[in-house]
Amino acid sequence: MPVKLYLSTYAYQTMIDQEQVRKVAHLARLELTPAEEVQFTTQLNDILDYFQQLSELETDTVEPTTRAIDVSNVTRRDQREPFDDREELLEAAPDREGEFFKVPQIMGGE
């Protein structure tokens, strides 16, 4: 862990260490280089430390906002709308076999 002096009003604490960065990268399906792991650990700590200013706000009785302008219960008829160029969609895939998207081996191997 790189040691860093924080000149903020918050006591220094490590919000996220390199092991956690590796774990989060796995959840996000991102392969990070060792250099990226180190860099992201420092940068994410800076950013998470900045977020700490929110903890000064009393919000226990405040409802969360998920959307700024609420339009609820938007419905439509459950109707099929076929796309007219199936071939074009398949053609855009990095790999295909006939009318299927083709991916590397799923079972075994790791």
Partner: peptide
């Protein structure tokens, strides 16, 4: 899988995801 870039040195699906995105 469906469009865009894919890493070409991935032997398994999981490594294809992580390398493609990396």
């Amino acid at each position: 899988v469906k469009y865009g870039y894919r890493s070409d040195d991935a032997p398994s699906l999981l490594s294809m995801y992580t390398k493609t995105r990396a």
